[in-house]
Design a binder for these strands. Structure first.
Lengths: 124, 124
DNA sequence: ATTATACATAACCATATGGTTATATATCAA
DNA sequence: TTGATATATAACCATATGGTTATGTATAAT
């Protein structure tokens, strides 16, 4: 009879690449930085979010290493550090075979289609 | 002078594959289901989490389509539906080139190593 | 020295989240 | 019918999160 401690220190969730990337606006930021180093102000303008919000998201991204900063005058230039996203890539790549498989095994494809047609009927 | 509405209906965050996958225990569940259909009880035993918690996570996974259920007697058999993870795969794949590049451009590799050595020094 | 710009932080708020315990519901066994 | 098993839900709680409006801090411009 295992006891499940309540409220035990919850592992901070924003502290890994998966969570950093879970937030759509952060993905937007990364997508923008993918084309090159950018100052905060430009992100603000191009993404249409408030400056503090952009800064907050950038902080999260910085903390997981997905971006790096460099000060230039009064501006801060952020650049992508894609290495930090590799864990996500690696993990999800493990599932590649599942959608590749569909083209290998015809009967699975048919089963799949049949199921999709029926709907899963599992809600409620 | 754009006004940023406060507290405008926040897009439910658990409602897409990215967020479903951001939670480590949900990844564990998926990883387990990758090897085949499993009843809830087995997930509970193998993962050592409480039954209600597993059910809750399964619900989230179900809602984003990452798993599907099938009732068999009093048990509910869950199986992976990896298709739902494809958006994550597709997105992160866009960044592949960044770590592939490291082997193409030697000077970038060296720069990268130097930076890693120094730490990013961007905190505070 | 003063003002303006660019950005980061702080303080705050409503809501979402992960977890718990207790309970309801459906099936199987006696 | 009664009881046990398997799972889902409800109710609840502490904390994390995304967002806001100030405000602080460093650099540039006057």
């Amino acid at each position: 009879m295992v006891m499940y401690n309540p409220f035990v220190v919850r592992a901070a969730t924003t502290t890994d690449a998966f969570n950093a990337v879970a937030e759509p606006r952060r993905r937007e930021i990364l997508d923008l930085l993918a084309s090159g180093e950018r100052p905060v102000g430009e992100l603000v303008r191009r993404l249409g979010m408030s400056q503090p919000l952009v800064s907050k998201h950038l902080r999260v991204l910085r903390e997981v290493g997905a971006v790096q900063v460099r000060g230039e005058g009064r501006r801060r230039l952020y650049r992508l550090n894609a290495q930090a996203l590799k864990p996500v890539h690696d993990w999800v790549r493990g599932y590649e075979r599942f959608w590749a498989q569909r083209f290998d095994r015809m009967d699975d494809v048919l089963e799949e289609l049949k199921r999709e047609e029926e709907g899963d009927g599992s809600d409620g």
